[in-house]
Design a protein around this nucleic acid. Structure first.
Lengths: 196, 196, 196, 196
DNA sequence: CATGAATGAGTCTTCATTCAT
DNA sequence: AATGAATGAAGACTCATTCAT
């Protein structure tokens, strides 16, 4: 498997940097090759074409991203705790890698329909994790029954995604990790007062 | 002001159609000109450059979009009602114009950072509407006090946006308008049971 | 029809020159454009792609070539005279345009199977002229009956073609037009003595 | 001499196959190496460069080709018989090796001027055989005296070559060996009736 | 002798934009 | 105001060849 070769990772890391710094449309293959310290042609020994770099980048980085979230969440007791951990880990990881945050939140969205579908395929695994936590929450009777699973998933993912995108667009000038608890609270409790 | 000229609208409508049908990257200026029934050069009498078509498109269409939402919401009594109306009107309008839905949810996101910031500028007006409703809700003591306004806005917008994007990606095969109530409920009440 | 446009001919003439001087493989589109005095992109307003320049070149030049031969031959009385005129006109025309001779005899043969078939399609018209002359010769009882038409055509064309190619490869250092009569004699009478 | 090494022949045979099957322009060195069962680099232990494979291929295969023709013709009595044998053996050998026929008649002509001259050098030996037969025929007073030797050679070679090329282009759907006698008759007797 | 990973020069084509009419 | 022919910059990808092992 080529993925064990050092140049594969080398090129992907170079791609993340180059795309984060120059934007998607100014990220020529030659620029990525230069940053990776390989010849242009070498790129094509490890990737089918330019788009394949992006798909592989997303698979590689998101794979690790999701794995980390899976690890962190499974050990938690309740669905609520798991959800909080998921949000925290999601924010943490992107906060820890600014380049990756830019690439996933902004630059990678500038891709065509085909690439977008491949990206969505990778994301499915993440969405499954969310679904399971919701399922657990319902079983534990912490969450309401009768929730539309798809809508719930969209609320959770949409809220986190929008929150991260805004943070990236504000040039990451504030600490997003601090917001995990409040995001969690909003998702779990909504806007309404429940004390009356 | 050039915006009153019929060709201005003609070109923008052609752009929406062409982009929705061909995707952002296959939407050449010449294709838009052809669909609009004008010469390529004519485009440049009404728009500074290609990006300006997109910005104008977004301003024009989103302007109407937001206006409609403003109109519909102001007449409602409570913040909760206003929020529901906002969600319903948001979904309604995109459901009514499939081409526009594709363009705003998918194709326009493939633009560079600069364009994205102009788009965000247009969106601010919409986000203000949301902010006001939340503010009202807090004043009415329907919503919790102490909410982080930015996070709330991101939850509301993120959830709606993700919901519409998923619907567009599923090729609009189900009725999104029917989901407004449940989305509203999720946003207002969150996931948790509040009956215990 | 684009063929009436001056730039169409301009580009084709430039292509003949460039290919004759540089050889097929060193004839970049940009070189042809430069010689034609147009921008690279202009080429693509008149031709689908690089190969289309070559096909069009052959159609244009061979069309004229064959037309001239048709004109010259029809006025002649006997099949023998027509055949002589055909050979003379064939040699004459290539002798008159050294660049074209190089391109048709050497450079255009370096093309792929697809292009070669398009070239053969153009040549069919020429082969038909040959066939008709042979047919006439047989009817006039100047030529033997029972001749395999295809083989005859191949002998006539093959002999002329090989003769011109050799002349081009010898850098056109001798006068090929002077050889028309002898070639004609060889084709009509063959090698054998017929006086015994 | 490297030519006695088995890999030399192995690579040449692979080249014939690959070129016949894929066409000249799709016959990369790596493809030939793979078919030959050697590493890409190994090619360069036996051949100076890619062109050298082609030149060697032609020398190797044409050497055998011409040798066979020399053997078959020398034993014949008259020039006429020798010529017939030459034509028959020419057709026979190409009919027996379809791949070689494709390569010599079509694919190898797609080479540059330099390669073409090396190929012509190899062909000279064949043309000498033809010249000698014609010379003999003249001495035997079977053929006319006063023939232009070069033109005769061009007629003979051109006719055979054109005949084989047409047969290859028709995908070798008919039996070319059956045509040797008639080609011979055309070359010896020409088109004219000689009975009057 | 043999390997095959790495190299990097080379080119066709697209398309936003201009400007003479 | 409108046209549309012409421009030319820009970039992904291929593949013959090398050389460290």
């Amino acid at each position: 498997m080529k993925k064990n070769k050092p140049k594969f990772k080398q090129i992907i890391d170079a791609a993340v940097e180059v795309i984060a710094e120059n934007g998607y449309h100014s990220s020529q293959v030659s620029k990525i090759a230069k940053k990776a310290g390989v010849a242009d042609g070498t790129i094509y020994l490890y990737f089918k074409n330019k788009e394949d770099i992006l798909v592989s980048l997303f698979q590689e980085k998101m794979g690790q991203f999701i794995e980390k979230i899976e690890q962190e969440t499974t050990s938690k007791q309740s669905a609520e705790q798991k959800l909080l951990t998921l949000i925290q880990t999601h924010f943490e990881q992107l906060a820890a890698d600014h380049h990756l945050a830019i690439v996933t939140q902004l630059e990678l969205r500038q891709s065509n329909k085909e690439l977008r579908q491949k990206i969505n395929h990778v994301l499915k695994r993440y969405l499954n994790v969310i679904d399971q936590i919701v399922e657990e929450g319902v079983e534990e009777e912490l969450f309401r029954s009768g929730l539309d699973r798809r809508l719930v998933r969209q609320m959770i993912f949409g809220t986190m995604d929008e929150t991260v995108t805004n943070w990236v667009m504000k040039e990451q000038k504030y600490n997003i990790e601090e917001q995990a608890k409040e995001v969690h609270s909003l998702i779990v409790n909504g806007l309404a007062r429940h004390d009356k």
